[in-house]
């Protein structure tokens, strides 16, 4: 598919993993800004030009003027440039409600084995807790798209046995039919969880490790989870970014490094082996970075 890149960082790798899941002729309802948006735009530039990108504020298939402004994306003239339709949050919500949105792409703070998502509060919601911004559009994306791709980091505090607060629904308590019993549409599912280190799918509504990046081991991935996932019979070795993918990501989509350059470790591919070339960012700094945008 291209020349394997010699240098890339974890976030770039994760964005490329998601971009390669995107297919022509399908609709993608994508959380505003950040890695999910970078993944769909990278796919449309290079891999699946006929994939249809729909935003939380109801913009149907824009061709955003690049590079995007730092911080602000939704409702901006650059982000909604050359679209097929400008709608509203209600119009896109109703489009999703009738089943027009195939795949949702989301970021999250915390996820559990059932694919439930927390972006509201960590700790005890009724007592001591740390408050975050709420689900925004994620709840509707997770409820109404036929399938959902979730992006997060491979960290023990992010993969928890039970999220502290279900902001957006996965398989809820994991029992068969739980989503339907809660009034959610039939046939909608969490589908993939993608971190820089691994890709997960689901088996019987429980998270399953399906692929691992070549620069880490299965043991390292499992050590960064607070629960044990199911294991696929064969764990795929994930492909790292190509020079072509990085060229689009770095020179067209994210010139300022606002999405990818968040202190993520850099990996070097040298003579077939991968090595981390920088230290991981410290934990305290990581906590200050709001990753649920």
């Amino acid at each position: 598919m291209g020349t394997p890149a010699a240098y890339f960082n974890e976030r770039e790798h994760q964005i490329c993993l998601v971009a390669r899941m995107i297919e022509d002729g399908h609709t993608y309802w994508v959380a505003g800004g950040g890695s999910p948006m970078a993944a769909i735009l990278l796919a449309k530039k290079l891999l699946a030009p006929e994939a249809v990108y729909v935003t939380e504020d109801g913009v149907v298939n824009p061709e955003p003027m690049l590079p995007l402004d730092p911080l602000m994306t939704m409702v901006s003239s650059r982000a909604s440039y050359r679209a097929l339709q400008w709608g509203t949050m209600n119009s896109v919500g109703f489009q999703a409600q009738i089943g027009l949105m195939d795949v949702g792409i989301l970021n999250t703070l915390q996820v559990d084995p059932y694919g439930n998502i927390n972006s509201t509060a960590t700790g005890d919601y009724g007592g001591e807790h740390r408050r975050f911004g709420g689900p925004g559009g994620a709840d509707s994306i997770a409820a109404l798209c036929w399938k959902t791709i979730l992006m997060t980091d491979q960290q023990k505090r992010k993969f928890v046995p039970r999220v502290d607060f279900i902001s957006s629904p996965g398989y809820l308590d994991g029992t068969e039919g739980a989503r339907e019993r809660a009034g959610l549409p039939r046939g909608t599912d969490p589908w993939r969880v993608v971190t820089p280190w691994a890709v997960f799918d689901y088996e019987d509504r429980y998270m399953r490790l399906a692929g691992v990046s070549p620069f880490v081991t299965v043991e390292q991935v499992l050590a960064e989870m607070s629960f044990e996932p199911k294991m696929a019979k064969e764990i795929e070795t994930l492909e790292t970014p190509t020079e072509e993918e990085l060229a689009v990501l770095r020179s067209e989509l994210d010139q300022r490094g606002q999405i990818t350059d968040v202190g993520k470790p850099i990996i070097r591919l040298d003579d077939g082996t991968y090595q981390f070339v920088e230290e991981e960012q410290d934990e305290a700094k990581a906590k200050e970075t709001p990753s649920s945008w």
């Binding site: 409600q97 509201t120 709840d139 509707s140 279900i166 902001s167 989503r179 019993r181």
Partner: peptide, 23 residues
Amino acid sequence: NRIMAGAMGLPFIPVRSFGGTDG
């Protein structure tokens, strides 16, 4: 959606999302 219901002069609106969440 809630504001939409208010704009329609209705007392409530059924929604296919939100169920099952802690919200």
